[in-house]
Simulated assay, not measured.
Amino acid sequence: MKKLFYLLAALLLLASCEHKELCYQHPHLKTVRVEFDWRDAPYASPAGMCVYFYPREGGNGQRFDFTGTEGGEVQLRVGRYVALCYNNDTEIVEFYNTDDFATHGVYTREGNPLEPIYGNAANYAPRADGSEEEPVRVSPDMMWGCTASEVEVTDEGLSCSCLPSGAEDADGGTQRDEYVITLYPHELVCTYTYEVRNVSNLKHMVQMCGTISGMAGTLAFASEELGTESVTVPFESVSDGVSTVTGRFYTFGHHPDNPDPHRMVFYVVMDDGAKYCYKDTEKLDVTTQVHEAPDFRHVHIIIDGLDLPQPIENGHGFEVDVDDWEVVEEEIKI
């Protein structure tokens, strides 16, 4: 009986020694290569990019950061995702709802209309009629980004839906590759430029800045939907010292369903210390130029004529007081 017992024990021991591979990761982790294709923004030059992968079943997204514009490798569990990306070198914008793909967005801090004027410490400035209650929000950084839907990581490979702008694919825009996802960033922020021609007495101008009203204050990345609340955006002005003032600033743009007009206001400091505010004239209502721009991402505004006064000689320099802006509402000469 003892021999039989030892024999059975040996047989059971031999059977238990059958080799089986052990797997400790459920679901499995896969190395995924993220690549950025810049055909939709050939002149973009961000210092780095970030990508968020959000599980389709819910839960917080995973953020991965890359230096430069090429991308790199990330570790993702087998599963289904949606993804978004944007440049991570911003300094001005602030983010909200980063844990939710649908509402992850961006905005800018509060400012004041005179912020672009060097050395200004005043908060008061006359505003365009109807925009007095609008928040003033500083201009954002330039941003590039895009989204990818139907991202699926399996034990066999990766598939996702992401195409460059204007491209069509018979397979619904699906990429299939062995753990490679290609993203096609494009401009997310609008670039506005303006030109004020035939400005009189410009050689006596010391400093100048302006604002534009009726702009959007937020941007949601997933849908690229703009906020409906109107904000006023301050911007810098550059003089050629002869007769032309130009400027360039970034903005999220204007919500197409927002009826608020876009009116520009200019704040001018002359070399005798006098300060003038130009507002509420027909030429400074640029609503039509903004709405009918051929490219809503790149809007160029032209204003013809701005009469700066001849300053008093031996002026006293620049000092900003609370109520010392002389409002000029000049009419268009017909």
Rank of each mutant, 00 (worst) to 15 (best):
G105N: 15
G105D: 12
G105V: 07
V106Y: 11
V106D: 10
V106C: 12
V106M: 15
V106N: 15
Y107E: 13
Y107S: 14
T108M: 01
T108W: 13
R109L: 06
R109P: 01
R109Q: 05
R109A: 07
E110N: 12
G111E: 05
G111F: 14
G111R: 12
N112R: 10
N112D: 10
N112F: 10
P113T: 07
L114R: 10
L114Y: 06
L114S: 02
L114T: 04
E115I: 14
P116I: 10
I117F: 15
I117V: 05
N120H: 08
N120C: 10
N120L: 09
N120Y: 13
A121G: 12
A122N: 11
N123G: 12
N123W: 15
N123E: 14
N123K: 08
N123I: 12
Y124H: 13
Y124G: 05
Y124R: 11
A125Y: 14
P126A: 11
P126V: 00
P126S: 02
R127Q: 04
R127E: 00
A128L: 06
A128K: 10
A128V: 01
A128F: 06
A128D: 04
D129M: 05
D129L: 06
D129G: 03
D129W: 08
G130W: 04
S131Y: 05
E132P: 00
E133Q: 07
E134Q: 11
E134K: 00
E134P: 00
P135T: 03
P135H: 05
V136G: 03
V136C: 12
V136S: 05
V136Q: 09
R137I: 09
V138Q: 08
V138F: 12
S139T: 15
S139F: 02
P140W: 07
P140V: 01
P140H: 14
D141V: 06
D141T: 07
M142P: 00
M143G: 10
M143Q: 13
W144V: 12
G145Y: 08
G145N: 14
C146F: 08
T147C: 13
A148C: 10
A148N: 09
S149K: 07
S149N: 02
S149V: 03
E150L: 02
E150S: 02
E150T: 00
E150K: 11
V151L: 01
V151Q: 01
E152C: 02
E152A: 02
E152T: 03
V153A: 06
V153N: 06
T154S: 03
D155P: 01
D155E: 05
E156Q: 09
G157H: 08
L158W: 04
L158C: 03
L158S: 07
L158G: 05
L158T: 06
L158H: 03
S159T: 08
S159A: 03
C160R: 02
C160M: 07
